[in-house]
Computed example of a mutant assay.
Amino acid sequence: MRMPWRSATVLGVPGALLALGTLVWPAAPTAAVSEPYRPEPRPFGAACSVYVEGSRATAHCHNPYLDTDRVQLHVECARWWDVDADSAPVNIGPTGRATLTERCWKEIGSVWVSHLRR
């Protein structure tokens, strides 16, 4: 005797799903070691433009970020006998601006601005 079409579908589908489930079912999950949460560092640092004119150096700084930035202008003179100069450090708060100047007696060798998070 032949089985009606509907009975075959009802009996065959669960069996196929069970067979398919054992073939496709993923293995038991393994314990993964998670990394500790480290927040993204906030942007920091005032944008400074440095200008050298003769023996005088000037830095115009603007801080667009939330953290206070302590900036300082450093001037290294070209002559060995000329004393190098460092400006007084200035704290620039959010949206603050500052102008720093220093000079040598003769030529300037190099100029840079240092930043410190406050």
Rank of each mutant, 00 (worst) to 15 (best):
C77V: 03
A32N: 00
N91A: 02
S114D: 09
C61F: 14
S114K: 02
M1G: 06
T22Y: 06
G45D: 11
W112P: 02
I92S: 03
R70G: 06
E53P: 07
W112S: 15
N63D: 13
V52Q: 04
F44M: 07
W81Y: 07
A57H: 01
F44L: 09
V83N: 06
A59C: 15
P39H: 13
A31R: 11
V52N: 03
R38H: 07
G12L: 09
V90T: 12
R6W: 04
L18P: 03
P43Y: 08
E35W: 04
A85L: 02
L73K: 11
L73E: 06
A47K: 08
G21V: 02
P26L: 01
R118L: 09
V52M: 12
P36A: 15
V83C: 05
A46R: 07
S114E: 05
V71M: 08
A8P: 00
T9D: 08
T95R: 15
H74W: 04
H62F: 12
I92W: 03
P89K: 11
W112M: 10
S55Q: 04
G15P: 02
A78P: 15
C48W: 03
S7W: 12
R117I: 00
T95G: 06
P39F: 15
A59P: 05
R97P: 03
R2W: 13
D86F: 04
V90Q: 03
T30F: 07
A46M: 12
V13S: 00
S55K: 01
R38I: 08
P36Q: 13
L100K: 08
P39Y: 15
